[in-house]
Simulated assay, not measured.
Amino acid sequence: MLKLKFTLLFLFFISFGFSQEIEVKKLEINTKLDHFAARVVNDKVFFSSNLVTKRGRAISDHFSQELFGVYSGTVGNNGEIKDAEMIKKTEYGQFNMSVTTHSRDGKYMYFTGNHSKKGEDKLKDEKVYNLLITRAEYVEDEGWTNFVDLPFCDPAFNYAHPALSPDGSTLYFIADVEGTKGKSDLYKVSVSDHKSYGEVTKLSDSINSSRTELYPFVSTDNKLYFSSDRKGGKGSLDVYSYDLENDDPEQIAVSLDEPINSIGDDFSFFLNDDLSTGYLSSRRLRGEGRDDLYYFSGFKSKN
């Protein structure tokens, strides 16, 4: 009897230990094309993927840069994305858009697009259509309409990867404007009713590094997640977290453990409201294409 109790107790602890481990699963929607930046909004999931020809080949612009579109689907079992199709939009034809963030009610969407005016690529010393952030509004029976480029987006610089705070009052993003510490830094701006915006502010040096910061996301418990290729990571791009409610001046951004981070590029981290499941984009070993989507469960915050 004593042996049986010990065995059951042992099995309990083993089972409990396994239940706390993070599981990362490659999604069936992945192909040889890029799939990244999954975001769950109510009963839908939005993600970015290549614009393709009728033969399924990726479309590129005149600068040989591949073009992307935003797709939406429904969340199936174990995070699988079902019934995906390109979002319905008005006013614009086929154009480059990716990496969305949405208001809690799903009415407003911010995404990365391109300026209609040319700016300067200082590294290549040529004129290019730099990235900017655009806001769109969803109108029933019409789709996405009322596209408005955010007023602070200067054509001379890049602005990308928007991420709304849970209460919708702050928009985080990356930019390479003057004063940027690395190739791109994290910035924020206040949002008023999704119609007006405050002064752009760069996040602190405890978050930004001398390298590249990308893909911010803020969870419902107000933690900032982003990717960086700073020194000390497990791969080229790794996911980091920073507690926005912690006012400790000594706080630094913390690299997430495996299997969220790998020796490959890991980015565009998204955490569901349950704070334990979500989506990750990665270019890791045994992937289907270049950038693939993964679903994870059993996550616990490090901060």
Rank of each mutant, 00 (worst) to 15 (best):
S228Y: 10
D121A: 03
T74Y: 14
F111V: 14
L131V: 02
R284W: 07
K202I: 11
A37K: 02
G182K: 05
F173I: 01
K124M: 07
V75I: 15
F18C: 13
E258G: 01
E23I: 10
V40P: 00
I263H: 14
E213W: 08
F68P: 07
G93C: 07
P166T: 05
P166E: 03
L171I: 13
D121R: 03
G119M: 14
T201R: 11
D205W: 02
S72E: 14
V239M: 08
F16K: 08
D205C: 04
V52F: 05
Y197G: 07
L171W: 06
K89S: 14
G119V: 06
D176A: 05
A175S: 15
G289F: 15
K231P: 01
K202P: 08
N30T: 05
S19T: 10
K181I: 15
E91I: 15
L33A: 12
F270C: 09
Q65R: 10
F36Y: 11
H35Q: 15
K300M: 02
D266I: 06
L123H: 05
S15R: 14
G232K: 12
S236N: 14
G106Y: 08
E140T: 11
D61M: 01
F16M: 15
D167K: 13
R55W: 01
S204H: 10
N158Y: 09
D141V: 06
D229V: 01
G106R: 13
S190M: 08
K26Y: 00
T112F: 04
Y159A: 06
K122N: 07
L11S: 12
L203C: 13
G106D: 01
E258L: 03
S116I: 10
E80R: 03
Q251A: 13
Y279F: 11
S98R: 11
D193Q: 08
F10M: 12
G56M: 10
P151D: 12
F13M: 12
Y215W: 07
D265Y: 02
D125Q: 15
Y215F: 13
I207R: 00
D205V: 00
K82R: 13
V99C: 07
D248C: 03
G76D: 10
K89G: 09
S98M: 14
E250S: 15
V41E: 00
A163M: 04
N77G: 12
R211A: 13
F296Y: 12
D121F: 05
L131H: 05
Y295F: 15
F111W: 03
K183I: 08
F296M: 06
G93K: 13
L9D: 11
